[in-house]
Design a binder for these strands. Structure first.
Lengths: 339, 339
DNA sequence: CTGTTAGCGCTTTCAC
DNA sequence: GTGAAAGCGCTAACAG
């Protein structure tokens, strides 16, 4: 139904090769150029990327595996990846694992069959085995946000431990000694941040009673219920660290509802500076992750790998990996009081 | 590099036709079946979907055009679309327009070139012209959430006017006469909801002073600032309608901060029942959209079109369109007081 | 600069 | 049930 390059040939009388060459940016005589353009216009010709892909062995498509599309963080990163990719004329095939390891496995296989040129993965926690099909097919993979413990791969991450420890030290510097943490140890970033918190406390010689550790999921619900519990402790902490954006939201809502003001009654440091800050009466002090940089760097490294592979006759070298650790900044709000 | 069907031939001694047939579910002798399976296993053979697509003229991929990937609503719908599609063995190529009409146009062209079997679009407001390349290529399109004013297409929507009017009537039934609206007339759904609000008020013979209409964007910020302004009005309304989830969030935060309780001091009805309700002290009364149904129905209708086209020798019929209007339900929270 | 030819990996008649 | 051969739409040598 749609016009093919042969239709252009019939229209212009030129050969397939010439037409193809022009379509790919080659030089042809001005009059031929005009002929082709006219025919393209007339027939509404659009390249068949599928056919092109079959011969060039490149689909100009990258697969993006995400642990959960409904997550705000994921949305922002996808946005940036899409932006970068579209600048390069690449598309993205998105596969959502819905936090399910089994589905992630199927997704990878699916993307491999689709012959994507590379894969960017925001992985569900677990083993890197799910990526096996990509490895055997020689498809470059870049990890975003999370890493695997069992294998080294190209990755873009932040130093979650360091960031959390920095937040704790900031609280300590402001005179706080009784600091609670609302976290999610079952998740990769959650665990790292929890450990950063603990080591900073330990280093400072400060005790962390176990009722100061609220372990759950990275969700608004967890932040909310934990904060309410925290406020009821006989020995209430003077400060708290929230290990994720969803938790921030829950914390703030709970504090508002309980009419506990911050930083007057309790100091708060959170993670991620999304919608929240411009809306709150008291701006939250948070560790900011460079969300856009995740996407940018991810695409950059992946493209580097894709090009390396191309220059290497389609064989993916496997000597060493690039691990980019993006730096976080502490966004100074007004939610920490000096005591 | 990866194994092809020819490698399987060399391994098994069978012909390409037989192997292909088996791989596509055809009948072969048991012993041949075993041979093929063994070879597939040994060589890690994976079908090349690109090559297959070239001959079957179907990519088993649908393009999803979204106005903004970072939107919560979009995330949920993508999640559902992905789920349905993966059940059918289809993938989704996502293209994000970032609310930019120009980018949306490029996205459609891109998807068309990628030979997607169909397109699901959550369109940026504007003209349906952006879809022209899909029409000329005979690619079925289904609209989700929004419709165009200038052309009739297959679509899944809710009746935004009716839903908003229903909310207003509910407030009126509870004795409210002074009702404000926080809305976004520049957006499709926002305008529809605003109009539903106005017509219900008019029908009830209730005046709507212009300071009761807070027009802006569908965002937390708008909900927040509008609520603060609203609270300062000399003649404060007894109830307010929020036309979107982001606005709900802003409204609740502003009320909390201003220590205005609802429904005691003001009644609130909002749109969409996301995270919020399980976290708030006072549950919000909201119009619930059947988010998952959007995705399910969208995929269903699109598949129907794709199959029709296949049975019709690859030609897309164009007689009449399917418009599915999903029903909303009013989720009864406790944010409306009888006065 | 242009055209001829081969072939990417697969499916699909059509004989056998 | 199986195999030979043609061809999907395009690009990539290679001659001319």
């Amino acid at each position: 139904m749609p016009a093919t390059i042969k239709d252009i040939r019939n229209e212009t009388g030129l050969s397939l090769a010439t037409i193809s060459k022009y379509l790919n940016g080659g030089n042809v005589l001005p009059k031929n150029k005009e002929k082709i353009e006219a025919a393209v216009e007339k027939l509404h010709y659009q390249v068949n990327e599928i056919a092109r892909g079959l011969v060039t062995n490149s689909t100009r498509t990258v697969g993006v595996c995400v642990f959960d599309v409904t997550d705000v963080f994921t949305g922002i990163i996808l946005h940036e990846i899409g932006l970068q990719l579209s600048k390069l004329g690449y598309g993205m095939l998105i596969a959502d694992a819905s936090n399910d390891h089994k589905r992630e496995e199927r997704n990878v296989r699916f993307l491999v069959n689709k012959k994507v040129d590379g894969i960017i993965s925001l992985p569900v926690a677990g083993s890197s085995d799910v990526l096996e099909p990509a490895f055997t097919a020689g498809i470059p993979v870049v990890l975003l946000d999370r890493q695997y413990r069992d294998r080294s791969l190209d990755s873009i991450t932040i130093n979650n431990r360091q960031a959390a420890a920095g937040a704790v030290n900031y609280l300590i510097k402001n005179g706080h000694k009784k600091i609670a943490v609302i976290c999610a140890r079952q998740e990769y970033t959650g665990r790292e941040r929890y450990e950063g918190f603990m080591s900073a406390m330990e280093e400072a010689g400060l005790p962390v009673p176990k009722e100061y550790v609220f372990d759950g999921t990275h969700s608004m619900e967890h932040g909310y219920s934990s904060t309410l519990k925290l406020l009821k402790l006989k020995d209430r902490p003077t400060a708290l660290l929230s290990s994720n954006y969803g938790i921030n939201l829950g914390v703030v809502m709970a504090l508002n509802e309980a009419q506990i003001s911050y930083p007057e009654d309790i100091s708060v440091v959170g993670f991620d500076n999304l919608l929240l800050s411009n809306v709150l009466k008291t701006e939250l002090t948070v560790i900011e992750q460079p969300m856009e940089r995740f996407g940018q760097k991810g695409v950059e490294i992946l493209m580097q790998r894709i090009n390396e592979k191309k220059e290497n006759n389609g064989i993916l070298e496997n000597d060493g990996h690039i691990n980019i650790v993006l730096s976080t900044v502490m966004h100074m709000g007004k939610s920490v009081k000096k005591i």
